[in-house]
Design a protein around this nucleic acid. Structure first.
Length: 967
DNA sequence: TCTCTGCAAAGAGGA
């Protein structure tokens, strides 16, 4: 029987006398959720289970059975607490008695946590049914929180190590880089690749990292060769004796136990873990056994029990065998019994429970001997800065109270985001294939069209897409390829190569390609967390003084925001605001903010700023949230004549025309490291800025574009690499995308025009960008680019008034007066409804879900009318708030149709906006007016708004929009 | 029922 639900009460552990002696016991009361209370493998329980069975206590010896009467009657204890049998459970809750080692649960459980107990036993006493753990039971706390196997391993070593790794990230160091190479070579060997070829290529691929570590390739190859010799010897031994069934890099997710991870290899279904180090003891290290056992636990859940684990200590080589005592064979096998598996479950519970309240963990060192710990320094620094107790001791002074508060606040927000990622994982098994497809998170019903082994032993899989199915998946993405069931079936982590009618992916092992799923990643939250750590715990005190409001930002030669051009040569002719922006960026001793509304030449200004900085011999980091924005800015800089630039990023992230300056990671270590270190301009996404390699770099100035779309910790990842920074953005356009958003903020209009008349603070700290926070705190450190080169006067008027206090103006008369006739369009041929450059059309449609088919029809007609009048279809764009409506309209026209979010950053001569809504305008998509600002300001010469007039009149903001459009 | 881009991910070690 299986029990799942929220904990409503946690009892104390206590000893009871049974006829088999003294036993420990504890109770939890749980409110079952949904079908939480079900027999294993069945549906709902109708209460007809076998009542004659006795509750069993168990621990080491496993099978002790309590007599019914003796067991229950002895439960009355000295505390005067009610016994399980006496307590009424008529309120819909269920009481679970935990015996023996599962009393561990109550040491960590808290009210509100989710509990999952499997194989629990049911018994009856005085007419009431009670439940208890038995010999096969396992109890899981917060099963929805996915703990990584490597995290369980480090927690077993020392709980502090778990969150030190989490907070500070694992820095670039040689053992890790070499370990990764050895693991890759191991995988290659399993795929029958030539050893020398593999070593050559894998060491070459790690060139950049090895170079930054000052390592020589020959020396590394020799070392890896020694590890590989141990692997090869062992592999040969295995194949000589009996038939071997191998597979490498196995991705495992456990819905029941809340564990995910990747096993190095499976041999005849048994987990094999490769270790680069040496272990001269007869027994494997305990934490290593736990790691292998964790994989075995997940395998068992999939119905493939593994009773043996193998640890391969590849530094245990024959050469050293003579010199040292002890057991130096590389492979150590051990048996994986229930006791070990239970231990894994309990250890995972400790982590999940510690993470439950989403606060900064303090941790403890358990029995660890700190003097041998490689993490000792980090440990002492973190303890010192956060003023935590630590066996290792503390270094440095605690950060001030307000910084600690900031750290905790953002830690919580980032962790909330992590839960959202975990929720995405859960959808892999909680949603049906059809629901996943409906959600655009999976391509299902693929027809396998052949698998082919590649030269390097990896596999290329092909499949045919049955229909015109769409999804969030894109070429170049990492995804989960499966035979149709990504959790219980066969699944492989793959890279999408092609995503047309033919679907092509590559993976380490072959799979029958019937389904492709979005595979969530925690890397984004991990990097925000390390950026937060670097800023608060290791950041420059001078900078923190400004960012924590203890002093004003400073500029060379006084306050540049007040000074004009003076006598100097202008950086930019004919645009005073742009010129002043460059001046401020150059003069900034802390930071400068460039506020660039739509069409105001942000990218051009960025190029001027970078040029001015490079002229002064400054090393510049150019960053933005998206690859697209990074490449746009980089393009402008190169057009400005700055060619000594390096683009850091993945091959499929970097735009094709920037690949020529992309930093190759593979190659000679010294040369690769120099290519990065010596580049005067380095461009990378903020996420890449948080990578190990980039964290080794330092810059004079970081310039971050689209900074208003970045979370504060996301911005910090780039900013922390430089002495000073420049943020370019527009907080009146789209804010950062945050998944765990709680309630969204309301109106962003400075005119304070939200329905409630108030502007609620965002519920989630990540929803306010650092750009927005700083521009509100230090307006004097910002420049507003107030001349726009995109929209006609008529089009820009509403946006200027509502969002920029009327400060936004056309750059010149030509911009202001532009019309469709400039394009050779016969305006007279347009229907009267589209006669004005800003038009409103009410098609009298009906919202159906997130679509409005009638409105979609009308939008298509309007597009056709523009085209018929002579507008080039490439010059027309359609914007809708929902993806569903985007698809609906897309079926009716060939012009570009997209969501607001995806349209940000681009513009069209003609824009048609579909509002969809026909009754209330509730829903976050309509409540954040910044989204409307973006939609309206994509248009240059003509804008057609298509929506329901009555619905739009219900909100003052939209009513003003209507008035303007229908003028 | 909202919008969605980054990330190969996980990788190590000693008395």
């Amino acid at each position: 029987m299986k029990l799942r639900g929220r904990i409503v009460d946690v009892g104390d552990e206590r000893e009871v006398e049974t006829k088999y002696g003294s036993r420990s016991l504890a109770e939890v009361t749980v409110r079952p959720e949904g079908d939480g209370w079900v027999p294993d493998g069945g549906q709902t329980d109708s209460g007809d289970a076998d009542h004659g069975r006795a509750a069993r206590g168990e621990d080491g010896d496993g099978q002790t059975t309590l007599g019914d009467a003796d067991g229950e009657t002895s439960l009355s204890d000295a505390d005067g607490e009610t016994t399980p049998a006496e307590r009424d459970t008529g309120d819909g809750t269920v009481r679970l008695t935990l015996w023996g080692k599962w009393t561990h649960t109550v040491e960590h459980a808290e009210v509100g946590m989710e509990l999952l107990a499997i194989d629990v036993e049911e018994s009856e006493y005085r007419g009431e049914t009670t439940y208890a753990t038995g010999g096969d039971s396992r109890v899981v706390l917060e099963p929805g929180f996915l703990v990584d196997v490597t995290d369980i391993r480090s927690w077993v070593q020392c709980p502090r190590m778990y969150y030190l790794n989490k907070l500070s990230g694992i820095p670039l160091n040689y053992p890790v880089v070499k370990g990764t190479i050895v693991h890759e070579v191991f995988g290659d060997l399993l795929r029958d690749r030539d050893l020398e070829d593999s070593i050559d290529e894998r060491v070459r691929e790690a060139g950049l990292e090895l170079g930054l570590l000052g390592r020589d390739a020959d020396e590394v190859r020799d070392e890896v060769r020694r590890n590989a010799a141990a692997i090869e010897g062992w592999l040969q031994q295995g194949t000589l004796t009996e038939e071997d069934a191998w597979r490498s890099e196995y991705t495992l997710i456990s819905p029941t136990f809340g564990i995910k991870g990747r096993a190095d290899a499976l041999r005849r279904g048994m987990p094999v873990e490769l270790k680069t180090g040496k272990n001269t003891n007869r027994e494997p290290r305990f934490q290593d056994k736990i790691q292998a056992a964790a994989y075995a636990l997940v395998l068992a859940e999939r119905g493939v029990p593994a009773d043996t684990g193998t640890l391969l200590y590849t530094k245990n080589t024959a050469l050293e065998r003579h010199e040292e005592s002890g057991d130096l064979s590389p492979a150590k096998e051990f048996s994986i019994g229930d006791g070990l598996l239970d231990f894994v479950v309990r250890t995972r519970n400790e982590i999940a429970a510690m993470e439950f309240d989403v606060s900064v963990p303090t941790g403890y060192e358990a029995d660890a001997r700190c003097e041998y710990c490689f993490e000792q320094d980090t440990c002492m620094v973190v303890s010192g800065r956060l003023d935590q107790e630590s066996k290792a001791g503390q270094i440095g002074e605690a950060v001030p109270e307000d910084e600690l508060e900031y750290f905790e606040r953002f830690y919580r927000a980032i962790e909330a985001e992590r839960r959202a990622v975990h929720a995405e994982y859960r959808k892999l098994w909680e949603q049906s294939a059809e629901e996943r497809a409906e959600d655009d998170r999976a391509l299902i019903g693929l027809e396998p069209a052949g698998n082919e082994e590649l030269d390097d032993g990896r596999w290329e899989m092909r499949a045919r897409k049955s229909d015109d199915a769409v999804s969030k998946l894109r070429e170049g993405d990492v995804a989960l390829a499966s035979d149709g069931d990504p959790v219980d079936g066969h699944a492989e982590l793959c890279r999408i190569r092609e995503l047309g009618e033919a679907v092509v992916v590559t993976a380490d092992e072959p799979v029958s390609l019937r389904r492709l799923d979005v595979y969530p990643s925690e890397i984004g939250v991990d990097r925000m967390l390390t950026a937060l750590h670097d800023f608060v715990l290791k950041g420059d005190p001078d900078r923190k003084d400004v960012l924590f409001g203890r002093r004003e930002p400073e500029f060379a030669d006084g306050d540049a925001s007040e000074g004009g051009e003076g006598d100097r040569e202008p950086y930019v002719d004919n645009n005073a605001a742009q010129d002043r922006a460059v001046q401020m960026a150059v003069d900034a001793e802390d930071f400068a903010l460039v506020h660039g509304p739509p069409g105001t030449g942000k990218t051009y200004t960025i190029a001027q700023i970078v040029a001015a900085l490079v002229d002064r011999g400054q090393r510049v980091l150019l960053s933005a949230f998206t690859n697209r924005a990074v490449d746009n800015a980089l393009e402008a800089i190169r057009e400005r004549g700055i060619d000594d630039v390096v683009r850091v990023g993945t091959e499929n992230g970097v735009r094709e025309d920037m690949l020529d300056v992309r930093l190759e990671r593979g190659g000679d270590p010294n040369e690769r490291a120099a290519a990065l270190r010596d580049a005067p301009v380095v461009a990378a996404t903020t996420s890449t800025c948080g990578s190990r390699v980039m964290r080794e770099n330092a810059f004079d100035v970081a310039l971050v574009d689209e900074a208003s779309q970045l979370t504060e910790p996301g911005t910090l990842a780039a900013v922390e690499l430089a002495d000073r920074f420049v943020l370019v953005g527009d907080h009146e356009q789209l804010p950062p995308v945050v998944q765990a958003s709680g309630t969204q903020r309301g109106a962003a209009s400075p005119n304070g025009s939200s329905a409630s008349g108030e502007e609620p603070r965002p519920a989630n700290d990540l929803q306010t960008s650092l750009f927005e926070r700083l521009i509100e705190t230090y307006p004097d450190a910002s420049v507003l680019l107030d001349r726009q080169y995109r929209m006609s006067q008529r089009i820009q008027a509403f946006s200027s008034r509502e969002f920029y206090d009327g400060a936004l103006r056309p750059a010149n008369g030509a911009v202001a007066a532009q019309r469709l006739s400039d394009l050779g369009v016969d305006e007279g041929a347009l229907p009267p409804a589209l006669g004005d450059p800003v038009a409103f059309v009410d098609p009298d449609g009906e919202r159906v879900g997130n679509t409005n088919p009638t409105e979609a029809d009308r939008v298509a007609e309007i597009v056709d009318a523009y085209v018929a009048a002579g507008v080039d279809p490439d010059d027309v764009g359609v914007i809708a708030p929902f993806r569903a409506q985007v698809a609906e309209i897309g079926r009716r026209t060939d012009v570009t149709v997209d969501t607001v979010d995806r349209f940000q950053g681009s513009a069209k001569e003609v824009i048609v906006v579909s509002f969809v809504a026909t009754d209330a305008l509730d829903g976050p998509i309509f409540e954040d007016y910044r989204r409307i600002n973006v939609a309206l300001t994509r248009a240059k010469k003509a804008l057609a708004l298509v929506g329901d007039a009555e619905a739009l009149s219900t909100e003052p903001f939209y009513e003003r929009l209507l008035d303007w459009a229908r003028r």
